[in-house]
Simulated assay, not measured.
Amino acid sequence: MQIGEVAARTELSLRTIRHYEDTGLVIPSARSQGGFRLYTEDDVARLLVIRRMKPLGFTLDQMRDLLDATDRLDSGTELPADERGSLLERVRTFEDAAQQRVVDLRTQLARAEEFAGTLRERLGRAPAQ
Rank of each mutant, 00 (worst) to 15 (best):
L119S: 08
Q62S: 14
K54C: 09
Q108V: 08
S75L: 09
E21P: 03
R64G: 13
Q100D: 07
L60T: 14
R31P: 01
D68W: 05
G85K: 01
Q33D: 13
Y39Q: 09
Q108F: 04
D22R: 11
I50A: 05
R64D: 12
R111I: 10
R106Y: 06
R64T: 07
R92D: 04
T40L: 08
E114N: 13
T77A: 15
A69F: 10
R92Q: 11
V49W: 00
L79R: 14
D61R: 13
L109I: 07
F115E: 12
L79W: 02
S13P: 06
A97R: 11
A45C: 01
T59W: 05
L14G: 03
D96K: 06
L12I: 00
A110Q: 15
L119Q: 14
E113I: 10
R72A: 12
Q62K: 13
S75W: 11
R9F: 02
S29A: 15
Q99A: 12
R101H: 14
F115T: 12
E78L: 12
H19Y: 09
R18L: 05
E114M: 11
V91N: 02
F58T: 08
L109S: 04
R101C: 12
R120D: 15
R18V: 00
F115G: 10
A81K: 07
E113G: 08
L109G: 01
R15F: 09
G24F: 00
R18E: 03
D65G: 06
D65R: 15
R37G: 01
L67N: 03
Q99T: 05
L47T: 01
E11W: 02
A110D: 09
G35P: 03
Y20G: 03
L60E: 09
V91K: 03
E11L: 01
G35S: 06
Q100K: 15
A97M: 14
I17E: 03
D68Q: 12
E89K: 05
Q33S: 12
Q33M: 07
S86K: 08
M63P: 04
A97Q: 06
D104K: 02
L87D: 04
G57D: 10
T77H: 15
G117I: 06
R37V: 00
G76I: 11
R52C: 06
D74E: 15
E113L: 13
R31D: 02
D68V: 05
A110C: 10
R9G: 00
D61F: 08
